[in-house]
Nucleic acid binder design. Structure first.
Length: 805
RNA sequence: GGGCCCAUGGUCUAGUGGCUAGGAUACGACCUUCACAGGGUUGGGGUGCCGGUUCAAUUCCGGCUGGGCCCACCA
């Protein structure tokens, strides 16, 4: 079949997407005997559209998967979406102009469900258009019934094994929005504040001044500390410090965290709303904590006369009252960064309430051990994982006071307060609607359902289980542990770590054998892209303008794990590559019209040369793909194709292809063989990176000779025809041709301008030269060639060339 | 403040203890009917700064500067 003049990705890409889907090219086959390669695909958050960072990292993982598929593996590549998180909740609130907290939970959840259901398909479309070769029929959503069941079962299992417990703990709270928020919802903000120096007295009546930026928390003060090495205060340590206004007596303790340089070197700790306190408390347990804040940010009765006041009012009043007593010694203005709720800008408070935790601090060493059982690509990313584990201070809080999430599957007995977990066979449950399957041990049938939901990470850390559980037990064994977890480096500490933790707790097994960590896309100046900076790039526009293949080609240009600044002009390279391989294939198809895959008995030296070079490129490409170094494969294949194959090989064999009557049919057949084999191999090498153009070329030409339905089901090239001697002679030919080109360019002559006499001295035997003389003559348009072997004469250069025009 | 990573022509990158540091893009010159003007050939242009190890450093080590991600953040 003829190859048309031009290639149009706008027509071609949708055509092949449809073809792949219809022909189920990427379908997982549970019955296949082939080795399984399973991938724990990251489920993107349903909160808008695919961004450029997604297109970068999903392309990179897809290169690897496509390579593994062509290597004969039975690919398990599911696709999920994450739609139970805060991001989704916020998106729905914005889309529908509602506030979840002011709606009945059932109603809000229903709204989320139906909305997400509607947009999910469009959302996933972006990933298909990128050419991600997932089996989109193996699909899950982290809020669907299936995931709810898995997630709730995980909860119950951990509860029964004693790993899951409930206790009072701090929550990050926004007093303005009156809701618990997650760490990711906070941002830093520089705020001007005043540091108030307050004078207390020691037991013996000596003054002791401490400084605070949070005087409003004064009534909840439960501790006061200095640095153990601070000589100024050593003599007071252990004494009761008498606080002005409240007359509370608080023991002066020491703590390493105190910076003697800051303020006065004396710090007070308040059990309400203060993040510092939480850290301090781990070393100084406090029996009688005082909570003075209501969830709406006002003071409660524990604050005494300040009851009912807001934080700001309390602050002003307390400073006034202390001043009246003469206890305020100084007020310094300073700037510091505080955590605020990113949506409303309110400074967050740490409130104490009942929360569910997974106990895992005792497993740090195990987690590190498991991390070392996994192969990391790139290797150094493991260090981030270990740093995170070593720094863990709290158990894993998995409860959230939110609306749209997977319900925590427990009830509390109204009579005896016992916790009743749901039965596994009644999952999924909503304790606010459903009832336990049996009565409480105390005999009561009256329950209160847990209203909190699970944090999104509690579920997304189960993606291997969720995906694998879509199949029967026998198949599951082949799928788990999975082969690969691909993801970006920003969530090593969340998603990756949490998944290892859950896998340890449930299976005593690593969730996957390999992880590949992608980098970030930065803006053209190397800065982070963010919506607020307005420097984001929409990958859909890039695909529209340049094609998905070009975008993927660009994504293949960065080494795994490296961040890459985005510059639109870099997309041009991919488009040019497409044009080049299109035209080269067009050329080949013209000259291969009468070719029927015959293997010529004897190969011409230039064919032995190109096939030897090709063998090395294939070997290099294969090794690099096996090590997740797709960028090296791309570079090797690209350079080989453009320079070795197009610039030199094609130019050199033209004479034999066009002039069979003069050069002989055998010479032509040899060239056809080299042309076919090499171009087919290049097409296959590039198929994982540019799935569309390679499919187009395969379908247009190669398919009639090969027997796969798609290039993506073809066998990965395996060619081993290394011939060092042929390479040496072939390289010599190229060297001569390039030298003559340079001479012509220097004289501003056409490359086809005839050369009167070409004189070559080289360390090459005459017999070898005879084999390639005709090639040199044709490629240089030389009228006469004088060749002289230099042999043992040891000239300065291996090759000396003279050109006479 | 801590951890990890990165630093190569204007821009994006490859690579190496020693050949003339490779490619892409941008730019200049020339070529062009035989696959390709979204082309070909060719040219100029580069190892962030300071120190150390070494016969020799772009490569190894230390520091600095700049950038990225994560963590902790000042009572």
């Amino acid at each position: 079949m003829d190859i048309p003049k031009n290639y149009n990705p706008k027509e071609s890409e949708p055509k092949w997407l449809e073809f792949w889907e219809k022909e189920k090219i990427y379908a997982f086959d549970p019955e296949s005997k082939a080795e399984v390669y399973s991938v724990d695909t990251p489920p993107p958050t349903v909160s808008g559209n695919m961004h450029i960072g997604h297109s970068f990292s999903y392309s990179q993982q897809d290169f690897i998967v496509r390579f593994q598929r062509m290597s004969g593996k039975n690919i398990f590549y599911p696709f999920g979406v994450d739609d139970n998180g805060l991001a989704t909740e916020r998106m729905i609130e914005k889309m529908k102009n509602v506030k979840g907290q002011f709606m009945p939970r059932q109603e809000f959840v229903k709204l989320c469900y139906t909305t997400v259901e509607k947009i999910r398909n469009d959302f996933v479309q972006d990933w298909k258009k990128l050419g991600v070769s997932a089996d989109f029929n193996i699909f899950y959503s982290t809020i669907n019934k299936h995931s709810q069941k898995i997630s709730q079962r995980s909860f119950i299992e951990l509860y029964k094994s004693g790993r899951q417990y409930r206790k009072e703990g701090p929550t990050i709270w926004c007093p303005e929005c009156r809701t618990a928020i997650a760490q990711v919802e906070m941002k830093d903000e520089e705020k001007a504040t005043s540091l108030v120096h307050i004078e207390a007295k020691t037991e013996k009546g000596e003054p002791l001044v401490f400084a605070t930026t949070r005087p409003e928390l004064y009534p909840s003060c439960v501790g006061i500390s200095v640095n153990p090495n601070d000589g100024r205060y050593k003599k007071y340590v252990g004494q009761k410090i008498i606080m002005p206004l409240t007359n509370a007596g608080i023991e002066l303790t020491t703590d390493e965290m105190i910076d003697p340089e800051f303020g006065t070197g004396v710090v007070y700790f308040c059990s309400s709303g203060d993040a510092q306190f939480l850290d301090w408390e781990t070393r100084h347990p406090v029996k009688n904590k005082i909570y003075i804040l209501n969830f709406d940010g006002t003071m409660n009765e524990k604050a005494g006369v300040y009851k009912g006041l807001t934080i700001a009012e309390t602050r002003r009043r307390i400073v006034e009252d202390l001043s009246r007593l003469g206890a305020v010694k100084k007020t310094e203005q300073l700037k510091h960064s505080v955590n605020v709720h990113e949506r409303c800008g309110t400074v967050v408070e740490y409130m104490v309430s009942k929360q569910w935790y997974i106990k895992y601090l005792d497993l740090k060493e195990e987690f590190i051990k498991y991390g070392r059982k996994i192969k990391w690509y790139p290797e150094h990313m493991r260090i981030r994982y270990e740093n995170w584990i070593n720094g863990l201070k709290w158990d894993w809080n998995i409860s959230r006071q939110r609306h749209f999430g997977i319900p925590i599957p427990v009830w509390y007995c109204k009579k005896c307060n016992a916790i009743i977990a749901a039965d596994e066979n009644q999952l999924p449950v909503d304790p606010l609607v459903d009832k336990p399957s049996k009565k409480c041990k105390c005999g009561s049938g009256d329950f209160i359902g847990e209203k909190d939901v699970l944090d999104t990470w509690a579920t997304s850390s189960l993606t291997p289980d969720i995906a694998v559980a879509l199949f029967d037990k026998k198949t599951q064994k082949k799928l788990f542990p999975m082969n690969l977890r691909p993801q970006a480096h920003d969530i090593i500490t969340f998603w990756l770590f949490n998944t290892v933790a859950k896998s340890y707790l449930h299976h005593k097994e690593v969730p996957w054998h390999n992880v590949m960590i992608s980098g970030f896309v930065l803006d053209p100046y190397g800065k982070k892209m963010s919506k607020s900076k307005g420097n984001v790039i929409d990958p859909r526009e890039i695909i529209e303008k340049y094609s998905a293949d070009s975008l993927r080609f660009w994504a293949a240009g960065s080494r795994l794990g490296d961040d890459m600044p985005f510059q639109e002009k870099d997309l041009v390279t991919g488009s040019k590559f497409i044009t080049k391989i299109w035209n080269a294939s067009k050329f080949a198809s013209i000259h291969l019209k009468d070719y029927d895959l015959r293997n010529p008995g004897k190969l011409h030296l230039m064919e032995r040369w190109i096939l030897s070079k090709l063998s090395k490129v294939v070997k290099e490409s294969t090794e690099n793909f096996m090590n997740y170094e797709y960028s090296h494969t791309k570079l090797a294949a690209e350079t080989f194709f453009w320079h070795t194959f197009c610039d030199n090989y094609l130019e050199i064999i033209k004479d034999r292809l066009y002039n069979a009557e003069r050069r002989g049919e055998d010479a032509r057949l040899s060239a056809q063989y080299g042309l076919y084999q090499t171009l087919l191999a290049i097409t296959k090498l590039m198929a994982p990176i540019m799935p569309f153009i390679t499919e187009e070329l395969y379908q247009l030409y190669f398919k009639s000779h090969e027997n796969s339905k798609s290039v993506h089901l073809e066998k990965w090239p395996d060619i081993n025809l290394i011939d060092e001697h042929a390479e040496h002679i072939g390289d010599f030919v190229v060297q001569v041709v390039e030298f003559v080109r340079r001479q012509k360019t220097a004289k501003q002559l056409s490359l086809k301008a005839p050369v009167k006499k070409l004189t070559i001295k080289a360390k090459i035997e005459e017999t070898d030269f005879d084999e390639v003389e005709a090639e040199i003559r044709a490629a240089t348009s030389a009228e006469s060639i004088v060749f002289e072997p230099t042999r043992g004469k040891a000239p300065e250069k291996d090759v000396e060339i003279e050109v006479e025009f």
